[in-house]
Design a protein around this nucleic acid. Structure first.
Lengths: 264, 264
DNA sequence: TGGATAAACATAGA
DNA sequence: CTCTATGTTTATCC
């Protein structure tokens, strides 16, 4: 499940590669991935020229010269490859360009490629929260945002309407490095720790982006990233750096792994 | 806080006393209690003849011959007296009839006397749930209704959108007599106990109505009711009939008192 | 817990 | 936690 650093990286790579290219063909293998009929989708994007590519949270935005857009979400695992040959692995969609290259969209489960006409809004992204990286959010703004709420900090961070881009892989590491217990509610966490969390998010994401994302995700060139988090092991009973056994707790629909000694 | 039995009793008493009477005057001391301007309210009801009086849950409905209506809610404590003399206790409204009698509305806190024109709907009562007593709900209907939900049974019963008329006084007794622990969620309660609960609600309400309501509430003649619940004491540590100490637990915004032995 | 409303939280579904 | 929709609870207001 690619999160902010991977999506940021993918969008920047695409921005380098496909701006100015024109779409010559499009093949949809899974109509559930798109938001309109396949025929309409193809008619809408073929012959369009790419204007730019950017991202917000876990969403990639491809803007055409016409200002129509594609909103792409890779869902729970998936990749977006830029290549000349159709990949052998099962994919949901292929988009061809006039330079002989193509984009292959592969979703492990749910994923979206939504076409949105110029000026129209997209219901899945118009409520997206801040992208702490692209929006140049200051620590003060971050603290104001967080402290307005009283629920669990982990839920807050994972909710894309608050802060877009944090998912289940990075959250453990972010909380570990900020020494925050994943069960805590926002009012129970000191301002100092919330400030530390802000620093950690920025530095961790910058670090990961510079390494082209997480080690188990692919970039558009089919290359794995070099970033490895996992300061807190993903198995109950494994040892933290401090020697304490990692604890597993249910936090909503997923679990959290944390060190009872380091994360108070 | 009058609940179904008291409200049922008040509406039936009114139905015996005021049908056919004509309103000659109306005085509003607290404009927050009504839904339109005082002047409009008075103009709307003066000279109207009472057609009938009925109730649903904690609401009293006075219908005029014109089919305009008054929707009355006594809120958290309050009384509605039918008398010839203006009561000395502070009241929010007085309505006079052509036989020399008057209705005095007294609210301890929030209470409503809403005027609704013929055919129009009233937003506070149009989502009201069933009145188990007036609607002749069968046990099967009751079970279907309850079992469609998964939240706490106590919340379900107190929510006027589900079943109208149960409040904080009767709820303890109803759960005690049904041997249901007030902390249970609906799926955790056996069908047998839910069926028992249905019987208990009907029998308890019938009993209370026959005694003109709870012992601490007043009917329209300023007389206290004769019904006493309190099988489960309202003080932590007091003894249940079985000798076990009553336990107090938080259930949402209020507390529940229950016998850990009798109410499993 | 009287009732409205909004936010917060939980769960199922696609 | 990918996102939506729905249900349920909590908090605050009047």
């Amino acid at each position: 499940m690619p999160e902010l650093p991977e999506i940021y990286n993918i969008s920047e790579q695409l921005n380098k590669e496909i701006v100015g290219l024109v779409i010559t063909n499009s093949t949809i293998f899974q109509e559930k991935s798109i938001n309109i009929k396949t025929k309409d989708f193809n008619n809408s994007i073929i012959n369009q020229e790419i204007f730019n590519v950017t991202s917000r949270g876990k969403w990639v935005f491809i803007t055409f010269k016409s200002l129509d857009k594609l909103f792409i979400n890779l869902g729970m695992g998936g990749d977006l490859l830029y290549t000349t040959e159709i990949p052998k692995k099962k994919h949901q969609a292929i988009i061809n360009f006039d330079n002989g290259y193509l984009l292959s969209f592969r979703f492990w489960w749910f994923g979206y490629i939504h076409f949105v006409k110029k000026g129209e809004t997209h219901h899945m992204t118009n409520k997206l929260g801040i992208d702490i990286f692209r929006d140049n959010i200051t620590k003060k703004e971050f603290l104001t945002l967080v402290k307005a709420r009283r629920g669990s900090l982990k839920s807050f961070l994972l909710n894309q309407k608050n802060i877009a881009g944090i998912g289940n892989y990075y959250i453990h590491d972010l909380l570990f490095k900020s020494k925050i217990n994943p069960l805590k509610k926002i009012p129970e966490v000191s301002t100092r720790k919330l400030g530390m969390l802000y620093n950690v998010i920025l530095s961790e994401f910058e670090d990961s982006i510079s390494k082209r994302g997480a080690h188990y995700e692919l970039d558009i060139y089919n290359q794995k990233g070099l970033f490895q988090a996992n300061n807190v092991a993903y198995k109950e009973g494994e040892l933290c750096l401090c020697g304490t056994k990692i604890k597993k707790v249910k936090t909503g629909s997923t679990s959290s792994y944390y060190c009872p000694r380091c994360q108070k």
